[in-house]
């Protein structure tokens, strides 16, 4: 068994349990409201990192997948009054198929050309929804929430619990990919794609898997949005901000490990909630400055800094030990 496996699974079990049990503490509803957003960004940043971090393909289409998830959930809700679990499953399926489709169209492009193509995908999907009357077109659609699910006091608390499950699921998937043959293959193709292909790595297949998984998670993160905000409209749902934030969180947290983007998401999304009291632009400014600082001073992000401190402590201990042996 790999080191850290038990603590990881304990954490994975505890997070949703804590999310379910927190209301006992009698916390203000607002905290659940903002924690939902923090966890939503944990999913988005983790999902972004599967393609952007592990495979090195920088995706600016996060908003497209997130929005497609929200609208897929909305459609099954309007058509079939499907429960949230079904909405999430359908959204994830739509996201995976979109990921596959977008991947087939764009993954032969490299570097900045791929990134530009993902923006194009986002614009195409947004334009499609803008002209789709069934889901309200450009004006969007208002949702009337049904009765709250049994076992929860409010919708916000229920959605906070659901998002905690999605966050754990995204971390489990990211960790599996990172520690498996898939992760090594993605890492190899990020470092040297042609060499990886000639070393037996089916690079196109791995990139498509990464696109599909990443797209499915992003779309799943968007699925509870109609219930959460009671209103869905394309401009905010397909916003480029989601892409910029997911990318920033992964870069600042560190793209090399599965927990890096989650760490970045928790820090930035939490600070966003506090800085929002000043102004959202002020928070964007802070994120921008932080991003520039990390890219220049700590390219490995917080993960890199933590690992560097860990290595430094180990080497100091070894130096001290050898010094005492000499004495």
């Amino acid at each position: 068994m790999k080191r850290g496996t038990i603590p990881f699974w304990v954490f994975a079990a505890l997070l949703p349990a804590a999310a379910y049990g927190l209301p006992i503490l009698g916390m203000n509803e607002y905290y659940f409201y903002i924690s939902y957003i923090v966890l939503q960004y944990v999913v988005l940043a983790t999902a972004w990192n599967i393609l952007g971090g592990y495979a090195g393909y920088v995706n600016f289409g996060t908003g497209a997948f997130f929005g497609a998830g929200a609208y897929a959930a909305l459609v099954v809700m309007l058509l079939f009054e499907a429960p949230l679990v079904v909405q999430i499953a359908v959204a994830a399926l739509v996201g995976a198929l979109m990921g596959l489709g977008a991947g087939l169209l764009t993954l032969r492009l490299k570097g900045i050309f791929f990134s530009i193509a993902t923006i194009a995908v986002a614009i195409i999907i947004e334009t499609f929804v803008l002209n789709w009357r069934f889901v309200g077109g450009a004006t969007g659609v208002q949702i009337i929430r049904g009765p709250v699910t049994y076992g929860f006091e409010t919708h916000t608390r229920m959605l906070f619990f659901v998002m905690s499950v999605l966050a754990v699921a995204s971390l489990v998937i990211a960790r599996y990919i990172e520690t498996s043959w898939l992760g090594r293959g993605l890492q190899a193709l990020r470092d040297a794609e042609v060499a990886a292909e000639c070393s037996g790595v089916p690079t196109l297949r791995l990139k498509l898997i990464a696109c599909a998984v990443s797209g499915a998670l992003m779309a799943a993160a968007g699925a509870p949005l109609p219930l959460y905000s009671s209103f869905v409209e394309p401009h905010s749902v397909f916003s480029l901000n989601y892409s910029v934030m997911a990318l920033s969180m992964a870069v600042i947290g560190g793209m090399a490990r599965w927990w890096g983007p989650a760490l970045g998401a928790v820090l930035i999304a939490s600070s966003q909630q506090f800085a929002a009291f000043a102004s959202p632009e002020f928070h964007l400014l802070i994120v921008g400055l932080l991003l520039i600082f990390v890219v220049i001073a700590a390219p490995g992000g917080l993960v890199g800094v933590i690992q560097w401190v860990g290595n430094w402590r180990v080497s100091r201990k070894e130096i001290n030990r050898s010094a005492s042996v000499v004495k």
Binding site: R184, G185, Q187, A188, D191, A192, S199, A256
Partner: peptide, 15 residues
């Protein structure tokens, strides 16, 4: 064209 983020040993793990 080595896999630069991996150790020498891990480079061989790929094939």
């Amino acid at each position: 064209r080595p896999f630069s983020s991996m150790s020498v040993e891990d480079n061989l793990m790929v094939p």
